[in-house]
Amino acid sequence: MIPAAFEYYRPSDMAGVIALLEEHGDDARVMAGGHSLIPMMKLRMADVPHLIDLQGLSGLSDITVDTDSIRIGALVTQTDIIRHEGLAAVAPILRETALQIADPQVRNMGTVGGNVANGDPGNDMPGLMQCLNASFTLVGPDGERDVAARAFYEAAYMTAREDDEVLTTVSIPLPEGGYAYEKQKRKIGDYATAAAAVQITKTGEICAAASIAMTNLSDTPVFSEAASMALVGTSIDGTALSAAVSAMLGDIDPTEDNRGPVAFKNHVAGVILRRAIERAWSRA
């Protein structure tokens, strides 16, 4: 559990970060809270000769709530999310999710930026951001660009971010309606056996819009448009729930691990999604 030797940098501006990334290419990695990257380095599963700590940068630790959107800096910690009353008022699903990540010690260090950028299918924030239709701002040598969370994840640890880009901001349109982040895990600190993020609105007693994303049930988070659409226009009755679950099951592709075999994961994914929808609907 001792990493190979590495050079440590703590630049004070983004230009310094980009310059280091350009110089060292994929031999360099940026680090926010370090709670995904450092363990991988200690296990010598990640070889990072040049480690760039972003904690020297200013301007990446803010949470801004506007009239139509939320902006979260990459260095905002899960604890910051949990403690931010303004955020909890307009997007309570963020707090509900963050409280189910790891434990308080990890949440004090772990950041939203690191969580979404690392591309670990076990992380909870990527699925949540897909549910919320967030976008990620990437800064590179050629300037800034935005990528939708729903288009960001390509495979485990593979994302749309280029090696010389840094994810700086997560932007979320203000969510509407009821919400739920439902997660089954073996213990505190564990990744999900299955988790579902649901945001839902209603007109009268009919579902007007819905968004569903699943965590740790494929090599990427899974935004299930089909499952979302299965709810729209229904009264979220048994038929609609079954249709959404069935559509979701068509989109996920779990693999067997110590949490259990595929049949179990599919079954639990269905149960968890059903519960998430019901809870979100009750809050809509």
Binding site: R186, R259, G260, P261, F264, H267
Partner: peptide, 16 residues
Amino acid sequence: HDHWRIWQTANKLGLH
């Protein structure tokens, strides 16, 4: 008796 093994017991007994 972790989650999946308990689930498997229920499953084998036809409870799903």
